[in-house]
Design a protein around this nucleic acid. Structure first.
Lengths: 164, 164
DNA sequence: AGCGAATGGTTCAAGCGTCAAGTAAATTGG
DNA sequence: CCAATTTACTTGACGCTTGAACCATTCGCT
């Protein structure tokens, strides 16, 4: 507990971390609530559908989709099963690999994302984008990139279709 | 979907948001895994115990503890029950208010936090503090403060015992 | 070619979180 | 000073996530 103990944080670091934890827990909860209320989707479900909607052919292998959404394959498999049950996507065997499945967005799935997106984006604006000016947002982004270097050194959760 | 559509984000904003989502999902998962593995505690449980350990008397009302940990009272109630079962804290009726309960950290609870803290802090350092220089960290903190103005305008999750 | 290891995915049980309903005590306000 | 409301918390049912075990297919090696 001495100020120089390398195991602990300085007062400033500590306060910064505490506030980060507050964001880390409240922001997802708030977005989840908004999406659930206005579109009947969890944030994770929205994320899945939204990734599919951005990719050519509206289709991705489950393993890739799991990386992109930072989820376990097990969790994704369950969610995909439910979304398939709701008709928002379907599963197809991957012709290139007998083990693999592809999730394909249906028209209903596309419609669901398009219906959910405006409200979601509004929330993201309101909570994150608007309270920061352009410089602050790019600083925030830079910090996140540094953190992601550690969290995901292989960048496996980074969508390859987005330019830096 | 036009570039100026106020409902959508610019390419930069979008990329910044996407990377924030990656952090938002991976960082808690990583910290959870570390704590679970090394100390048998979830991040949320650690957070609860840690808040108690920082406060004079090692005791807080459940409602206040719920605010501080950004959780529902229901979730907290369940977790407190489990932690009480493990002997890490106990519940006492609040003499000042017949409806209220106070969670009190036991010696075993204190020991558990002290055992878990070094590894946890190391992880926080490694993933968040070390990859950023002092300026970047304070910029990150400033951004989080702006975001928290929206997420928690009443600052109810802010520990009152920490100076700004 | 063939064997062992790794990969892709599914499933099930156990645990945890959420939401709605319920109890009890304190506060408000008429 | 009593009824209605609000606050503090608990509980139970349900749904979701996790982790382990499992099967099938493909890859890597020799």
């Amino acid at each position: 507990m001495t100020p120089k103990d390398p195991r602990w944080l300085t007062a400033e670091q500590r306060l910064a971390w505490l506030d980060m934890v507050r964001v880390l827990t409240r922001l997802p909860a708030t977005l989840d609530a908004q999406l659930e209320r206005d579109a009947g989707l969890s944030f994770f479900e929205y994320h899945v559908l939204s990734m599919l909607s951005e990719v050519p052919g509206h289709t991705l292998r489950l393993s890739r989709l799991a990386q992109l959404t930072s989820s376990s394959l097990s969790r994704l498999s369950n969610v995909v099963k439910r979304l398939e049950g709701r008709g928002l996507l379907r599963r197809e065997p991957d012709p290139a690999d007998g083990r693999a499945s592809r999730a394909v967005l249906t028209d209903a799935g596309t419609a669901a994302v398009e219906r959910a997106a405006p409200g979601h984006v509004t929330a993201v604006r309101e909570l994150v984008v608007d309270p920061l000016d352009a410089v602050q947002l790019s600083q925030l982004h830079a910090a996140h990139e540094r953190i992601l270097d550690r969290l995901d050194p292989a960048s496996s959760s980074r969508p390859e279709w987005l330019e830096t």
